[in-house]
């Protein structure tokens, strides 16, 4: 598994090649021998290709900010989105258990973004909010506040999406 890393705008691929006698990491075109000594919180003490580097580092979002010899570097590890398999686009919302509609947050014909609230339902003394799993246009709302529904009941239909080129 390679790591794609970007430092101050320069991208490179980092690959661990070996671990003995020292950790060998290929960064872009070059292979570096790395020895990490333990250091305090936020500090690092690395020997790279025989040269010792001591400095500070701190995580900031998906970046690590590194302070080394009077310069600050921003190192970003490219991570895949925490999408958990990507949302698949459903065309309708059905009730997973029986309950009653407490509130409706959208309207027929409205366009909603992923994550936008659609309905608030109550089942078994527990309120749940149903959100849109993807951006879509609401074709029809099949329930109104106060409506009682069974498991599997159709609550919201989305307008079919046009085929997009990918």
């Amino acid at each position: 598994m390679g790591y794609r890393v970007e430092t101050d705008g320069v991208k490179a691929e980092a690959q661990i090649l070996g671990r003995r006698p020292q950790l060998a990491v290929r960064l872009g075109e070059r292979v570096h021998r790395v020895l990490a000594a333990s250091a305090g919180e936020g500090e690092f003490d690395l020997t790279v290709d025989g040269v010792r580097y001591r400095g500070w580092r701190c995580a900031s979002g998906d970046e690590v900010h590194v302070r080394l010899n009077g310069r600050t570097y921003r190192v970003r590890l490219e991570r895949r989105g925490a999408d958990q398999g990507g949302a698949s686009e459903q065309e309708e919302v059905r009730a997973s258990m029986p309950g009653v509609v407490v509130a409706v947050h959208c309207a027929s014909g409205a366009h909603v973004e992923a994550g936008e609230k659609l309905l608030t339902l109550e089942s078994m003394k527990l309120q749940m909010t149903v959100v849109a799993s993807h951006a879509a246009t609401i074709a029809r709302l099949h329930v109104a506040p106060g409506a009682v529904f069974e498991r599997g009941a159709l609550l919201v239909s989305f307008a079919p999406r046009k085929e997009s080129e990918s």
Partner: peptide
């Protein structure tokens, strides 16, 4: 676990 592609 669903995965959107082989890499994932």
């Amino acid at each position: 676990y669903p995965a959107r592609d082989e890499q994932e």
